[in-house]
């Protein structure tokens, strides 16, 4: 099991006290599995994704990633986990503006100490980025930037890829193209893929679906 979540709870402070966002989530994923997480705005999808990605800490419950319980981990251990086990693709791409496209693709893999230049080159080639490796992210279109974010994640060979509305900022044709490439590459690397999305089209391409409503999985 690459992901095992048990009774996960999280609330945020609001004007009238704490507002519960996740009220006891149970979720698991096997290696290579793909899962679409859907739900209305404010249902807690992104919060769940951030907790699984080790970007935030839950109030209660447990998250096991590749066999490791991450809920009790300190900041440094969770950072190490983000370098090597799990990786997030954001809707806003969040590339590093000061690095070239080539350096952005290699960045996480180099941080994890497992950059395979041939693999990174192939990813860039497959995603149509070979001609842009020396450019800075701000010179690329939105679709190209999202492909750089995907290449960066997959170059690091994580066991679990988390994607938060990965095609939310792209037009329909570009989104379909990016999705095809992402699925093909995830399958090739054997990573599990959890996608948070509003898009029915995107969700239908995943093996499993989970719907989040009022802080619970349906």
């Amino acid at each position: 099991m690459v992901l095992d979540v048990r009774d996960l709870q999280k609330s945020f402070p609001g004007a009238e006290g704490d507002v519960p966002v996740l009220r006891g989530i149970d979720l698991s994923m096997r290696e290579g599995e793909t899962l679409a997480l859907t739900g209305e705005s404010g249902s807690g999808k992104s919060t769940l994704l951030h907790l699984i990605g080790g970007l935030d800490t839950p109030d209660a419950g447990r998250i096991r990633l590749a066999g490791q319980d991450i809920t009790g981990m300190n900041d440094a251990a969770r950072a190490a986990l983000r370098r090597s086990v799990v990786s997030v693709i954001f809707q806003q791409f969040n590339l590093i503006p000061s690095l070239t496209v080539g350096a952005n693709i290699a960045f996480q893999a180099r941080l994890a100490g497992r950059l395979d230049p041939a693999h990174a080159d192939r990813l860039a080639n497959v995603l149509g980025l070979s001609a842009h490796l020396d450019k800075y992210p701000e010179a690329l279109s939105g679709g190209q930037q999202q492909r750089v974010a995907i290449a960066r994640t997959l170059a690091a060979r994580p066991q679990l890829v988390l994607a938060d509305e990965p095609t939310g900022n792209l037009d329909e044709a570009t989104a379909a193209n990016v999705l095809d490439q992402m699925l093909a590459l995830v399958t090739e690397t054997g990573a599990a893929l959890l996608v948070v999305t509003h898009s029915e089209t995107l969700a239908s391409r995943m093996e499993r679906r989970a719907h989040l409503s009022r802080g619970r999985l349906a």
């Binding site: 900041d75 950072a79 986990l81 983000r82 370098r83 941080l111």
Partner: peptide, 15 residues
């Protein structure tokens, strides 16, 4: 916004 991606990719806040 410039530092958050590096943090998300595994660089600690202390670092």
């Amino acid at each position: 916004p410039q530092l958050a991606p590096a943090w998300a990719l595994g660089v600690t806040r202390t670092a």
